[in-house]
Design a protein around this nucleic acid. Structure first.
Lengths: 160, 160
DNA sequence: CTGAATAGTTCAGCCAGCTAAAATGTATCT
DNA sequence: AGATACATTTTAGCTGGCTGAACTATTCAG
């Protein structure tokens, strides 16, 4: 099932995966002892690289005060660290680091091994097709997130 | 970038997509006015079909009291409804329904249209490859979620 | 050097959503 | 019928994480 090529097949393909991805993120998050906000912020830091607290506040939509607590928690969990900027010593740079907990590292290792098993079932040419689909889908999702955010608050474009 | 075929390529492909999926879910969730728990529960209901409150409690890991509140919120948002069981009138069946809000429906319509655009870029044979990859990846993720949950609480298998 | 602006932290208060336990309504067993 | 078990709801109380506002440290403009 779910391999038909009718209209909406693309959406259905994505939906299948989508739930599994979200549940996996959730499982990893609770394994790390992170709230949803923490996990999302960590994702932003990983994806966009080190940034100041102010920028992180803008990207997450949180107030400065909340960001302080957030970074405290990430730091305590060994998932990020604060670095004072040499140029402007008011400014922080918040850097995501690798998972400290052995449980988390083991979970990622298992995932990586399992995904290698999946990859092994495909030829190089097939993997290229998959990569193309993944990239196109990723782009679509990002655009849609953007779209949703801007329809909700067209004037409050915070940093993206 | 990210289209190389070295070791870990599968994991990297997945990671690209994973963030985008999570952010999209998040955007949809806040568009619906749902908490993370609500959204997760709704996903379970959609995926596994109607179920009793007790079973939903087991699947979400919540206490019965919390489930009452959760279903109240879903019902208020027009995303699920309670049905009294005719056989055993103590028992409820909780049924997920379609998104009530026009905003949400529009967002899904936009996504579907955009994904149709992606699908159009692939031949039927290529889509079959993608479908195979999606299914294999979905299976892997579900297994890993299971794995994580059971390593954390090997004795407390609640209903899965 | 002074005053204004900026980056981040601290503090007090608030709210959502959780748990635990008691209450309610229904089914089952004897 | 009476006692017991079960499914869900209600209630009380707690906690985490948020906001808004005051505060500290640093930079910049004049």
């Amino acid at each position: 099932m779910s391999t038909d090529a009718g209209p909406g097949a693309g959406a259905r393909l994505g939906a299948e995966l989508s739930d599994a991805v979200v549940l996996f993120h959730d499982a990893i998050g609770s394994l790390m002892g992170l709230s949803a906000t923490d996990h999302k912020a960590l994702g932003i830091l990983r994806r966009e690289g080190p940034m100041s607290a102010t920028r992180l506040a803008a990207r997450t939509g949180l107030t400065p005060g909340a960001v302080t607590g957030l970074v405290d928690r990430l730091e305590a969990a060994g998932l990020a660290r604060r670095e004072r900027d040499g140029d402007d010593r008011r400014r922080l740079t918040i850097v995501a680091t690798d998972p400290a907990s052995p449980d988390v590292a083991a979970a990622f290792a298992r995932l990586q091994r399992a995904m290698a098993g999946v990859t092994a079932q495909f030829s190089a040419g097939e993997l290229a097709v998959v990569a193309r689909w993944v990239e196109a889908t990723t782009t679509v999702l990002r655009e849609q997130v953007h779209e949703i955010a801007h329809r909700r608050a067209p004037e409050a474009r915070t940093g993206a």
